[in-house]
Each structure stands twice: as C-alpha cells, then as structure tokens.
Design a protein around this nucleic acid. Structure first.
Length: 275
DNA sequence: AATCGTTCCTGATAGC
DNA sequence: TGCTATCAGGAACGAT
C-alpha cells in the first residue's frame, strides 16, 4: 500500500528517468475508467493529447503532475495502484487502467488491480478539496516540534488514529504508523493529548527519520507496491513490528501483538510500548 | 465540529 | 475440485 515513502520514490523516479517530463503525450488508452476516473472520460483525451508534463511532485500520498498549459493531473494510488514507466506501449497486464503514450515510444501506465485508486484532472485554477485539507508534510522544513505539539493537542485521539489522519500529518498510513509508534515506545492506544514532552520530542525526530529511511530503501513491498521501474522496495526487510504478530520483539523478545483500531490492524510490543 | 462506522474493490488464502 | 467466507486498508460519506 503506497504511503509517503513509496509515493516519493515513484515521483523521484519519474523525474529522473528523463522520459516522462517534457515528452509529448500522443495517445491515451483507458480500461474501465468509470471505476476510477473522477472526470468524464470524453473530456480527458482532448485536454491531454498534445500536452506535456512540465513537472511532477508529491503532497501527502498524492502524485501531482503539472501540464504545460497549467492543468493538473492528480493521482492517488490508494491500496494497489501503481504508476509504471515502460520503454514501449505494451500493456503491463489486465490491471492497467490507463496508458499515456509518449512521442518517443515510451509510456506511463496507471495500473490498479482493485480500482480503489483515483485520477483527477484539474483546470488551471481548480482545487482538489482533499488535497487542500492535508496536514503538514512530515519530511520537510515545515515539520517541527511546535506544529506537532499543536496538532496533538487539537484532538485527543488514540495515537494510531492520530498518525493516520491526513489532515493532521500528511502521508502516514497503516504500516508506518505502527513502525513510528514502536520506535518511539508509545502504545497505539495512548491518547494524543496525554503525551509527555519527551515523547513529543522523540516523535518529532523519529517520524521524518523513519520515512526518510524508507525512502532510501525504495519503500515497503508487502504484496502490490512497485516502484515506477516495476521493482519491489526493500524496507519490508527492516520492519520491526508491522505484520509480525506472534514474533519476538527485536528489542526485548516479548511477543508482538496485533489489535484492531478503527477497523485496521495495529502491531506493537506490549513490553516496550506501555500506556 | 469532531469522531465513528460503513462502503468500495479484488486477489490471496483458509476451510469444508 | 470447487465453492464460500474472510481479510487486506485509504479515503469518501453518512450518521452521531
């Protein structure tokens, strides 16, 4: 499931590969667009064919392409979405949802087995509400102990729920929420308003540190995630608690527990992460 | 206003 | 073998 690090790796690869930006889009092919396309399909081709992507960036888990006429193409990969660059036009598999054919014969393919991912096409001055409401970027100079303390105090939610709220901090999902809390020795049910100053300091340090480390390791592949080069990440080999219920804690040897919070799995060490 | 529960969606897997 | 049930979770949405 692509979270901030996975989306960041994809965006960096799209920038670096030299084929996606400033390459003219000559054709689009759609598959089951009614499931995942947020705009009327008939409107997309006339607006995109002949255009070029001028830039691509990330905000939270959203991928944002700016076109040479200032339209924006926004993609959210949700659970199983992939964005793959190929040196040819060949459809990757039956889960390909859209192929952007470039003038040089290469293509960008939006692929998503479960069709939960979404694609938006915005007019030059059109805003996407969910994007506007995103909280602070955790891997940026905007992130600080002060802003984290303010966000924590703005509600009194369970910490796992707090970290997953995109309106508080953008980009953290189920995997990194568990990993962050483990490395900060905070129980996932600890209330956000009850953290000590020391715990807030630790979170301020660890949130960007873990996300950066995951970026350096090309993200976490459990099942579906692939980079833009269609390769797996490596950070799954460095996970301490996610998906490890019943295994010994790497710090103390106690058995890692799995609990359900907000209908999602949380993993933690009951000995290291006390309330 | 903030929070909570439900829904979408399909491949993998378990159980009979 | 083939069938059904369950699970995975990000975000939108309706309800509280």
């Amino acid at each position: 499931m692509p979270e901030l690090p996975e989306v960041e790796v994809i965006v960096r690869q799209l920038i670096e590969n030299g084929h996606v930006l400033e390459n003219q889009i000559v054709k689009l092919t759609f598959f089951r667009p009614q499931r995942w396309l947020d705009v009327e399909m008939g409107a997309v081709t006339p607006r995109l064919v002949g255009r070029r992507f001028s830039s691509v960036s990330r905000r939270g888990k959203y991928i944002i392409f700016t076109l040479d006429d200032s339209q924006k193409l926004v993609i959210h990969l949700r659970m199983t979405g992939k964005l793959l660059w190929l040196p040819n036009f060949e459809q990757v598999n039956s889960h390909t949802r859209e192929i952007f054919h470039f003038q040089d014969g290469s293509s960008l393919q939006f692929n998503d087995s479960r069709t939960l991912g979404r694609l938006y096409l915005l007019e030059p001055n059109q805003a996407l509400d969910a994007l506007e409401k995103l909280g602070v970027e955790p891997v940026s100079p905007d992130f600080s102990e002060k802003i984290l303390r303010e966000q924590l105090a703005s509600c009194n939610r369970e910490m796992k729920d707090f970290l997953m709220d995109q309106k508080k901090i953008a980009g953290i999902g189920n995997i990194y929420a568990s990993e962050i809390l483990f490395r900060c020795s905070i129980h996932p049910k600890q209330r956000s308003g009850s953290l000590t100053g020391k715990e807030i300091k630790k979170l301020t340090r660890e949130i960007p540190a873990i996300l950066e480390l995951a970026i350096q390791n090309k993200g976490t592949t459990i099942f579906d995630y692939r980079t833009a080069e269609n390769k797996t990440g490596e950070f799954q080999n460095m996970l301490k608690v996610y998906g490890k219920a019943g295994e010994p804690c790497p710090n103390c040897g106690a058995e890692i527990q799995r609990i359900i919070q907000q209908q999602r799995s949380s993993f933690f060490c009951p000995a290291c992460q006390k309330m």
